[in-house]
Write a protein that binds this DNA or RNA. Structure first.
Lengths: 226, 226
DNA sequence: GAGCGTTTCAAATGGTCGTTTGAATCAAGT
DNA sequence: ACTTGATTCAAACGACCATTTGAAACGCTC
């Protein structure tokens, strides 16, 4: 946590968890302060209101997130390898298979995405935007002639596929038997979404009759395929 | 609205709008009753509590929705044409380009998907499930050898791409310039997602260097491409 | 250790929430 | 016209909410 003041830091952490769990309206200052172990009046002293606390909590939450954009050596990989690694990392965050127990951060982010408040601008500018920019760099290499709009919608197709397992998780569970749902681990989904996307871009053979991800296409493949 | 009682019907309608707009915690019984033009005590008389009203409102809301599964002649079309029509109809619902002003119904549905309550089971069973079943029928024709899990994840890839423009709408806007965002109308997105998906399945040529959706592949195309 | 600005605290404030109440009103059978 | 059961109504209930208050506790300089 960036804040030097331990009370503010504890409040931001506790507020993030409570807001993620119960939403803005559902979370109470009382519960936040109990969780933080501070007096109830501290919220209105350090922040001016519940709204301000929420905004600060959202910003603070994603400042602690490990950013894909910061750690992955995407430039040193081929476009297809970079894309696979990006999807893998994205899914890993989405599926909350994280070593630390900070599963509430992405939950808070989903709430802000679906029902944006004033904190959304900061969230996009500092976290989502740079992360998406890395994806656009990869796609710029796979589709050198594509215009900016096209790059964006291809990016949205990739991100949309990944986020669906977070956003509509409850529905996905109910649409499948439990045993089939349990097959959808990180590796399976990475293979599927990567294969699906690479085939769409002509960088791998299409999903076969059984729907399995195809193999990589050799260089200069796009001419061959057309 | 199915309910014969006009008071219950007005309450369910008003509750749906308020819950969609403000969420369960944010919506108030007072505001719902004002919107419905009924007395405040009517909620606890006709429904037992706010929770029950919410559950009934969610179920009532999607019972009025026009179901893709009911009206489209998917079986009479080729798989590729059926898929395009399905994606078009799905996007049309998602983007809320609907003649009636019932934009709040899909909003209520999104809330229930992201934060499911007891109403989620009914929602999946009666609305989402049958709709997804139609998609699975189409995909069963395009990927005859695929197992059930594979059909599901391919379906999720399609639905995920479409829903992203609803779920993450605010983020999509902020990631693009306004003029570029305005390009993303129903036709553009239908072309893109259909082309992306058909290419991934080997039913169309991959997106070209400019990222534009490719043309349809002739029959027995999968052997040619491999 | 006196003075002073900052931070914490228990308690209270006013407001709004979901729910309840009991009387008023309505509809229909006799 | 009277009875009876169902529905509506204005008003009030207790609970909980975010926020405020003023005193107490703290950290620091002189």
């Amino acid at each position: 946590m960036l804040s030097q003041d331990p009370t503010k830091a504890k409040l931001l952490e506790a507020a993030g968890e409570e807001f993620a769990l119960n939403g803005f309206e559902g979370a109470t200052i009382r519960a936040i302060c109990v969780r933080a172990g501070v007096n109830q009046a501290a919220v209105n002293y350090h922040f001016r209101s519940k709204e301000q606390l929420y905004a600060q909590a959202v910003i603070a939450a994603h400042q602690c997130r490990t950013h894909i954009s910061d750690e992955l050596p995407l430039e040193s990989l081929s476009p297809t390898e970079a894309l696979r690694l990006y999807i893998y990392s994205f899914l890993k965050n989405v599926l909350e298979i994280q070593t630390d127990g900070a599963t509430w951060r992405s939950e808070l982010m989903m709430r802000e995405i679906l029902h944006p408040t004033e904190a959304c601008d900061a969230l996009v500018k500092e976290s989502i935007g740079p992360q998406f920019e890395r994806l656009r760099e990869i796609l710029g290499r796979t589709c050198p002639e594509a215009d900016d709009t096209r790059i964006h919608v291809i990016g949205f197709s990739i991100v949309g596929q990944c986020l669906h397992y977070k956003m509509a998780n409850a529905v996905c569970r109910r649409l499948m038997t439990t045993e089939r749902y349990d097959q959808l681990n990180l590796d399976y989904l990475t293979d599927h979404i990567t294969g699906f996307t690479l085939a769409a871009l002509g960088l791998a053979t299409p999903l076969d009759g059984a729907g399995s991800p195809g193999s990589l296409v050799q260089s200069a493949s796009s001419e061959v395929l057309q």
